[in-house]
Design a protein around this nucleic acid. Sequence first.
RNA 1: GCAGCAGUAGCUCAGUUGGUUAGAGCACUAGUUUGUGGAACUAGGGGUCGGUGGUUCGAAUCCACCCUGCUGUACCA
Length: 444
Amino acid sequence: MVKDKKTKPSKELPLGFVDRQEKELLIRDFVISNIKEVMIKYGFQYLETPSFEYTDSIGKFLPDKDRPDAGVFSFKDENKWLSLRYDLTAPLARYVAKNYLEIPKPFKRYQLGTVWRNEKPGPGRFREFLQFDADCVGTKNLQSDAELCILVSEILERCGLNKNDYIVNISSRKITDKLFEKLKINSKDQILSTLRALDKIDRLGWDEAKKLLGEGRKDKSGDYTKGSNLKKDQIKIIEDTLKGKTTDSEDVLEITKIFEAYNFKNYKFDPSVIRGLEYYTGPIFEVNLNFDVKNAKGQTIQFGSIGGGGRYDNLVNNFGNLDCPATGISIGLDRLVFALMQKKDFKIKISRPVVICTFDKLRTKEYIEILTKLRNSNISSEIYPGEGKLKKQMEYANKIGSPAVILYGDDEIKSGKATLKNLKTGNESSVKTEDLANEIKKLL
RNA sequence: GCAGCAGUAGCUCAGUUGGUUAGAGCACUAGUUUGUGGAACUAGGGGUCGGUGGUUCGAAUCCACCCUGCUGUACCA
């Protein structure tokens, strides 16, 4: 078969998708095991829903012809549009609506799953990522909201973050709702663009955010963003209201009281917390990291929050006439892992096998005897999987980070003692084959 | 989507008044050592210089368009 260069498959990945290697995956596993333990402790059920949903079930309307994939990945199957889920909250609302009569009320569930977004990736943001989501459905009791913040904090601290590394910012959608009422801001467009501008205060600062509230703003690349055209006195009232460190918001006051009862202090009232625009109706929370995150080139990047959530009392109701208040929180696990990898004091153990070097194919039986002994002792081990000289085998063992190699050639077989070489120190010792497992455990 | 910057070997990058056969370090392969890695030395393989078109006797180098990446910004249920 003639190979034409032009027909060679591409080795590049699609935009926004990445290969994830062992270190990252092991840290992710560590995070997940912490999550599961905490969720059991807090009394949440484990749920899984499918990757695909009908597009309209998860809050997307039929894709239009020009951009059939705006925001999500979709395709048409038997005349119905399907989409890959873009979060775990919308599928939960669908699940609750479908199983409304059977589920306990309130219903506390958690879920871990990959979600997909068809949008431009940024630093530490991809188009495919793993999300953790915990929700409490079927009660207006704000203890649920508080519990979600506390459980996320416990997860973060179990993963190795300390109280200086993160903070939970809380606010309530009702604060901005009231404010807009007072200022007679009624147009939906203006409300949305104002919320967006306020959402950027922590990143841009008040001076820049105020430009977005007014006429518009030019960013440092020279790009211009239109503002929401509020009047100066309106902007002033917004600024005065939101800059206050205290609030008369009932939501916030009540949650604060519950936090106090838990003796939980790692939170801050921050009225610039806005989160999603569409469905939140009450308390909203956002989890932010307090340390710098750098990219592969060592530049500090705008990392944003690693998670957040809030109360959405109307979402389930969209599926029918179901009065079903709810509150939830999610963490972007890959982003958390990305951040954890940058903490200097964070270490994860990666097990690499002891390599049994091969000298002679006729000795395969002897190698397997040793291998079986080691594996029966639960020691990660392998017979050199390739072919080649001892030097090549040593290079292999060194490259994979193996702790030791075992040399068992004719000389050793005659004497019944294998040579055990510690690859860290270079020391070699002669060990009876039945003692190998114990000797290796000493150097691991 | 918009904007700025950038694409030369697997990786990091040199390479301007446009001129033989396009370089270095690391990595890779082989050897110095046919039973010893992480050090050294020797030799070797590997590039349509992001793509297409143009200017020119001649283009990695100049021009146009396109593609891709990074960063910011917008959108983000």
